[in-house]
């Protein structure tokens, strides 16, 4: 596998949310706004990249029997640093992401990539893998949050600046009745994620069938 394939596999083919169904808890909880999704996405990309880099660098000196505790210590250290840095420099996002930042420590994707990839490959491949997986994870968060925020409030706000206001396009200063905050609630998250998984699964199945036909 070359580095390009290594990077792109995490975007769709082996997307950790759409294919592996990992890390769904924060996906459902924090995708209420695009701002949250961007913050969480950046935190996961950074954490995944740094932990993969460290773990692949020390893989030859880590005894097999205690590799999992060592990985957990490395991951939790990186997450704690992210938590402190966000509290200091991005306080608004830190507050809205709340408990989900420390919970990155137990995110299956981080430990999963450390165990499945970084512990068996070199630093460069591990960083490329982490970037691909992290961007794939963040992209799904972004898509879900845009859908939820638009349907839920009719507008998108990022870091205090209004990016899009559909209500105003219809000449209204208030939220139009077609936008229901049901989609910002947890039930809305399940529906949006379910629909997204369904759509992606259908496309994937069709593609696989097409490939099989072409092979025959």
């Amino acid at each position: 596998m070359n580095q390009r394939e290594n990077f792109t596999k995490g975007l769709l083919k082996e997307n950790q949310i759409l294919v592996a169904l990992l890390g769904l808890c924060p996906t459902l909880a924090i995708t209420t706004s695009l701002e949250n999704a961007l913050g969480m996405g950046m935190a996961v990309i950074f954490c995944l990249t740094v932990t993969n880099l460290i773990i692949s660098s020390i893989r030859k000196i880590v005894p097999d029997e205690i590799r999992i505790p060592i990985y957990i210590v490395v991951i939790s250290t990186v997450v704690t640093i992210i938590d402190m840095a966000m509290a200091a420099f991005l306080p608004a996002i830190h507050k809205s992401l709340g408990i989900f930042i420390p919970l990155i420590t137990v995110n299956c994707i981080i430990l999963g990539r450390a165990e499945a990839f970084a512990s068996k490959n070199g630093p460069l491949s591990s960083v490329v893998d982490a970037l691909g997986m992290g961007i794939g994870y963040a992209s799904v968060h972004i898509v879900i949050s845009i859908i939820r925020e638009v349907i839920g409030s009719g507008k998108i706000t990022v870091w205090g600046s209004l990016v899009l206001d559909i209500n105003k396009l219809f000449g209204s200063n208030e939220t139009l009745p077609i936008f229901t905050n049901f989609f910002i609630q947890p039930a809305g998250a399940f529906i949006v994620l379910g629909l997204l998984l369904g759509i992606y699964s259908t496309i994937r199945t069709k593609r696989m069938k097409k490939t099989e036909v072409n092979k025959k």
């Binding site: 205690i66 210590v73 250290t77 640093i81 840095a85 420099f89």
Partner: peptide
Amino acid sequence: LLLIILGIIVGALLSLVNMFTAPYI
């Protein structure tokens, strides 16, 4: 011993980061 050494390194690193970020927080 390995885990103790790792713990010491991590502890030192986190206190360093804490020293830097605490005033901002």
